[in-house]
Structures are given as structure tokens and as C-alpha cells.
Design a protein around this nucleic acid. Structure first.
Lengths: 250, 250
DNA sequence: CCCTCCGCTATTGTATACATAACGCATACA
DNA sequence: TGTATGCGTTATGTATACAATAGCGGAGGG
């Protein structure tokens, strides 16, 4: 064991957690595979205590599963797990949108949302959309969803949505990327943008039910498109996290 | 430090987690209070490593909050946090009911649900309900909700509902007890039972939307009643977990 | 008398040593 | 030859020692 070089700029626990998550999401650790603490100690550079804390956090996050006899393994997901997770998040975001609408949101608070909307409109003007623009789209879309979630002003709900987004394929970025594998990707993006426009309008007019309904529809569409995308296995290597997690279960 | 008497029948981590949760829920540790690891080591009988693992798990569970400068404190909840948590769980259970209805559930799988229903009917025949019967009601009601959740057959959803129920006031038992503080408790229980009856019927007839709607209504009613119950502070000492968590925030 | 700075103490973060249980392999017996 | 048992190795669970930091109190200066 060479002298441990400690990076004191960041907690060892967080460092280990990030490193392990990266290994899982990048596929270095296959689903179903048992994670060896000792090996994790070597690859992350932290010692066993922080590594164990990171493992516990990743288990709570849903990326790992505790093995009854001890230790942890990388969790494996079925196709239905994935679509359920997306629908779940859509339901929660629907509730967030309803809360935002019912509780009232000032014009000023709605501003960031409208900025995202306008920026995405700008991007979609390109036909077909470039790779760079698509990448910007992914970022802006994630931001839109995050801001919308915050507008619910409900810490318990925000917390739960964050948890639901922890699984990479259930995060806004994740399923947008899945949809991009489809030939009609551009059309899908435009429809999604329409949903965004409606939800803002519904919140502005305090129509809680409408705001909720559109977010759920947004998610249901994503699930449908994901199903289609999973048929086109050829494009699936575009989606790092999704493809890796999924392929192991079948 | 006296010789540590180790109970080898259960993992030290689990033991510490149970002990700490009990301390939080019983009010030995007040909301907002910093939890001292050393003190936790003394009261739980485990050493620092398992205690720390337990603290991390309790944080993920939502009972604790990490302090930026290090350590953990007992989380404090506002009245709105509580009602949002209940509505959140109702929404998730609504989704579970819809999944159950849409995906089809055999008569045999519905049996345990109907048994709960019948048992509760039996209990409610008493007017007014006795303390013992009410206690049985709480158990049966919790079972009803648990079975219904399972019927969704969606691991990600079940997991999320479990997390949402981790907060004591958001668990089925928790809010039933809150409602019991109201004078019209008996009437409320009867209405709740009616909801249970409807959701079973909806699932049997594969009416997803109806199944979902009734569960959400069920939760909304609970929220309304909770609000009323919180006005009657006099009865609040009946609800250990709720009263303790709540009182600290105002 | 108040404010500031320095140092001490107490508590958390990290590392590692020790105990224990599980898994695998080999050998012996049926 | 197959199965069962026992031993050895390895990995996890637990305990504790060590390090570093944050908070607090006292003392000194303005």
C-alpha cells in the first residue's frame, strides 16, 4: 500500500461516493456484481470507513442493493422498472406543478422557467438539430424540470422528486437522451416543448388540475417513446447510463 | 468504559438505528437538536462505526438532517410539511391503485384486501368504538395500505411509498391516529372504509382512473382532518410521533 | 467596557486493527 | 464417483486510535 495521498479539498466520503457512482454508471461494475470493499478502497483512494458510508448512501439512492449475507451488489433494473420510474417521476412532478399553480407563483418566480422555454425554442429552430444544440437542450430541459420542482415550495415533495431522479434513466436528462435515439426525435422535442408551454400557462392561470395533467402526459409520452427506443437497440449506445443498466437484466 | 456487552443476535448497525429512531420518535431527542455521536454510542451500546452508519440511514430516511459543518441534527417539520407528506403519499398510493387496476389482479390476490375490509367492518359495528378496537383498526388499516401498495407490482413505486411512509406522521397509522383526535372520529372512519370499498371495486373492474382518484381523495380527506385535529391541541398528546415532531417547529 | 485574536477542548472525519462469519476447496467416506 | 464435512482463506462487521477542524472561552488591547 503506497502512501495514501489524501485530497483534503473534498470529504473522502463524498469522493468515494462520486467515484463509485461513476464506476456503476460507466459500467465498470456490472449490474448484479458484488462490490468488494477492498477493491473499492483501491479504486477510490479512500479508506474503508468512508467507502462504507458511500456504499450505504448509494444503497439508499437505489443504485446498490444490500446482500443478505453481507456487502452490496449493483442493482439490476428491468424494462418495466425503468418505465415505472419515469411515470413515477411524472406523477410527482405533476403534483409539484399543481402545488405551484394552487399556491400561486409570482411573475418574477416564473421568469426562469420562461427563460428556459425561450432558450429551447431558439435551439429547436435548427432543423435538424445539431449535436451541440441537443446537448444544450438536455441541460436546459433538466433546468426547466428542476425549477418547476422548486416552485412547488414543498420540501418533502422536492426531496422525493430528487430521490426519484437519482436513477439515471429516470432523470430528465436520462429519458430525453433515450428519446433522442428515435428517428422522430425532433418532433418529440417539439411536442415536449409544447407541454412546457402549457404547464407555464396553467400555473400562471392557477389551473392546478391542468398543470398536473400536462406533466403526467409529458411523462407518459416519455414512457411510450422509451419503449419504442428500446426496440431500436442499435441507437442505445448513445445513452450511457440507460443502456448499461438495462442490458444486464436480459 | 466498562466492558461492552455485545448482543450478537442482531447487527450493531440495525440495533443503533432502531434505538436512535426510537429516541427521536419518543422525543428524547428534540427536533433541531444536534445528535452527538459519542452520546449515541453510550445510549445505543454500539461503537462509532455502526452508529455513523445508522445516522446516515436515518438521514436518508428523512428523520435527520446533515449539518454543513459536520454531524447531524433531528429534523423539524412544519404543519405544511406534514400535510404535504400525506398528500404525497396519497398520490403515490393512487398510482399504485391505478397500476393494480390496469395491470390486472386476480381474485385470489384481492382476497387479503377483502379480509381487511371485512375485519374493519366488524370493528366499526361498535358505536362508539372501544380503545382496543381502535388499536386493531390502526393495524388493519396499515395492512390494507401495505397490501394495496404491493398489488401495484412495481418495485420502484413500492420503494418510494415506503420512503414516503418513513416519516411517522405520513404513515397510515400516523394519520389515522391524528384523525382520532376529532370528535367526529367514528364518522371519519366510516367514510375511510367506504373509500377502501370503492378502491377494491375499481381494481376488480379494472377502472384505473377511478381507483387512483379515490385514493387521492382518501388522502385529501386525511389532510383536511389533520388540519382540524391540529386546531384541537387538547387531543394531540394521543399521537406520540406527530405531536413530538410538530411541536418543536412553532 | 467591548471587541478581537489566540489557544484549548471537544467532536467529527479518517484510517486501520481485530473479530467473525461465509465461501470454497480438498479430502475422505459411502 | 458423488456427496458431505472440515479446514483455510477472504471479506465483511465492529471497535478504536489518530487527525483535523470548528466552536468556545479567556485574555489582552483598544
Amino acid at each position: 500500500m503506497a502512501e495514501r495521498e489524501v485530497d483534503r479539498s473534498i470529504s473522502q466520503t463524498v469522493k468515494a461516493q462520486l467515484a463509485l457512482r461513476d464506476q456503476i454508471l460507466s459500467g465498470s461494475l456490472r449490474p448484479g456484481e458484488r462490490i468488494s470493499e477492498l477493491q473499492a478502497v483501491e479504486t477510490t483512494g479512500a479508506s474503508r470507513t468512508p467507502v462504507r458510508m458511500a456504499l450505504v448512501r448509494l444503497e439508499e439512492e437505489g443504485l446498490l442493493e444490500a446482500i443478505p449475507s453481507g456487502g452490496f451488489m449493483v442493482k439490476a433494473f428491468s424494462e418495466r422498472d425503468i418505465s415505472d420510474s419515469i411515470e413515477l417521476r411524472g406523477t410527482l412532478e405533476g403534483l409539484a406543478a399543481r402545488f405551484a399553480a394552487e399556491r400561486g407563483v409570482s411573475a418574477r418566480e416564473l421568469e426562469p422557467l420562461k427563460e428556459c422555454l425561450a432558450a429551447i425554442d431558439e435551439l429547436l429552430r435548427q432543423v435538424p438539430i445539431s449535436v451541440d444544440a441537443f446537448s444544450s437542450y438536455v441541460t436546459l430541459n433538466a433546468r426547466f424540470h428542476a425549477v418547476l420542482t422548486e416552485l412547488s415550495r414543498s420540501p418533502p415533495l422536492i426531496r422525493q422528486i430528487d430521490r426519484a431522479s437519482a436513477l439515471p434513466f429516470a432523470s430528465p436528462s436520462g429519458f430525453v437522451m433515450a428519446q433522442s435515439a428515435l428517428p422522430e426525435a425532433q418532433q418529440i422535442l417539439i411536442i415536449g416543448q409544447e407541454h412546457h408551454r402549457v404547464v407555464i400557462d396553467a400555473i400562471e392561470n392557477r389551473e392546478g388540475a391542468r398543470a398536473e395533467a400536462i406533466m403526467r402526459e409529458h411523462a407518459r409520452l416519455a414512457v411510450r417513446n422509451l419503449r419504442l427506443a428500446l426496440r431500436n437497440r442499435t441507437h442505445l449506445d448513445l445513452l450511457p447510463a440507460l443502456a448499461l443498466i438495462k442490458t444486464a437484466t436480459d
